[in-house]
Design a protein around this nucleic acid. Structure first.
Lengths: 205, 205
DNA sequence: CCGATATGTTGACATCGACAACATCGGTCA
DNA sequence: TGACCGATGTTGTCGATGTCAACATATCGG
């Protein structure tokens, strides 16, 4: 299809794709509006017709990441509807593995140091949906007598914190002898972390 | 003491202090070499006599943060030498509270998105020292029959991940209805998270 | 006292984000 | 079919930034 000289057609989506690619290649520090514009084949100020500033583009990239992560962990949990403990294990594993599959995007989502627009509705809604799902699993586990009868929110937060902390430590290369790019050893450690944390949530006889 | 026009005397330390102040005031995005040089009262390229580039200055700021955090958590734990569970609770609480006391520095330390020199020896040594201390507490708790007999490293990693995850989620303002700047509610949630995780580490009768 | 080194300053360049003014395209209406 | 308007591009510019080179000054040691 022939491209008219002055009208891209779907530049917003093209800029988002270009930004994601640059992010994966060079990290957040290597991602500039000018580089994304060039990669999308337009002039250096064309992005300002679709995004008010750089933070808005970065926020949209992060929001896509939140949606993908929420959908991925929900799907992983949904496969074991009758087993709350298994659901939590699978959601935890998926959370870590999917985050590490796109490390620069995960850092953009969670790491700070780069101005984002935290008021973006997609941003907040996706995160909240994931947390609601986590709390629903815990509620089901409590009804089944599998989890302790403590308030759900702190239990959910503990589970989320433990996998999120593992992700952030791996992304920051903080764990000696456990590089983020050794999938089998990472999954083994994820299994450990989720199992030990699940122990803390299980009801004791 | 009189300052000679051309010789600062301890510019490296002054630049580090200026950088920390700017970081606290404006975050990582608002910290520039030129602003730090100006705050230290020298010309815009004087920093290059003490730091090869911007990343080196930021790395030095982060390294100071790692040292302070390692020392703080070690001191918190040392006050309860006979009670491994209490040591872990206090170290966990201190880790979160101290990180949140300087949120921009904590993000610089752990968040990524800003190029740092991860090979900095202070950087790695401080983090390793803290982790070694954590493992030593767990070993003592296992000898006392308080903690489960699993391998120490995954237990230590689970405890570290849970408090680290809480810090990162709070810094990223990801937890609805729990802002990072409400100390009492944060400490309450820290207590929950460390208690639930400790449950997962305790030996069961 | 002099030479070498450390440590400043000045000036310049490339890149970046953002803004203003202008140019083109697509859609709508008379 | 042509005019008009809004959407959406382009061109040019400016201030800020990181970094480098050349030069200037201060300190130290022989």
């Amino acid at each position: 299809m022939e491209k008219k000289a002055y009208h891209h057609g779907d530049l917003r989506a093209a800029l988002l794709d270009a930004a994601e690619t640059l992010l994966a290649e060079k990290g957040a520090a290597g991602l500039s509006l000018r580089a994304a514009a060039k990669r999308a084949g337009v002039s250096h100020t064309a992005p300002y017709r679709h995004f008010p500033n750089k933070a808005a583009l970065l926020t949209a990239v992060a929001a896509r990441g939140f949606v993908a992560l929420a959908e991925g962990t929900a799907a992983a949990a949904a496969a074991f509807a009758d087993d709350p403990a298994r659901q939590l294990r699978e959601a935890g594993r998926c959370y870590v593995v999917q985050s590490l599959a796109n490390p620069a995007r995960a850092m953009l989502m969670f790491g700070g140091n780069v101005p984002l627009d935290g008021e973006d509705p997609l941003f907040q809604e996706a995160g909240q949906r994931a947390f609601d799902g986590l709390q629903a699993i815990i509620a089901a586990g409590q009804r089944a007598g599998v989890f302790r009868d403590d308030p759900i929110r702190p239990l959910a937060l503990t589970l989320w914190s433990s996998v999120h902390g593992l992700v952030m430590l791996l992304l920051a290369d903080q764990i000696r002898d456990l590089p983020a790019d050794e999938p089998q050893r990472v999954e083994e450690m994820v299994a450990w972390v989720t199992e030990v944390t699940l122990n803390g949530v299980r009801r004791r006889e």
